[in-house]
Amino acid sequence: MTHLPDEDERLTTLLRAIAAPEPPPDFLAGARRRYALALSARYRREVSTALVAAALGLGLAVTLMLSVFEPVSFIAWVAVVVADVTAWMTGIAIVLSVVPPVLWTTAVLACVVSLLPIVLLARARLPLVVK
């Protein structure tokens, strides 16, 4: 606080003697109620903005896809892809069920045994040549 000369101090005393109105006793409760309302309104606004943005994004994506692909040919392409994936999955399942587990185990072990020397060689350090 700045130091005030006597005359300013007298002015300050008199200005403070002018009775200042005090906030009513329920001021805090009123402010709290309004703040809670404002916060919930902001939350609702944020949620509705997010929903509108999501709906717009979805609409835009669908519009773009429909403009790039013909709807009928797009559906046909999706059907072909689904059929291919299903055929591949079925084929793999048949192979797995037909070949006995002993053969699978042998094949896996053979792979590991053939790869192991290569890995060990790769990890081995070459001796330094000292002059």
Binding site: A20, P21, E22, R34
Partner: peptide
């Protein structure tokens, strides 16, 4: 801070609206 804010509103408005606007200030 309610006292200085409320007093400022009263000084400017000199009406019962002061309470309303002082609360709105905090919000």
């Amino acid at each position: 801070f309610q006292h200085p804010v409320y007093r400022l509103c009263r000084r400017i408005l000199r009406s019962p609206h002061a309470e309303d606007l002082a609360q709105e200030t905090f919000v």
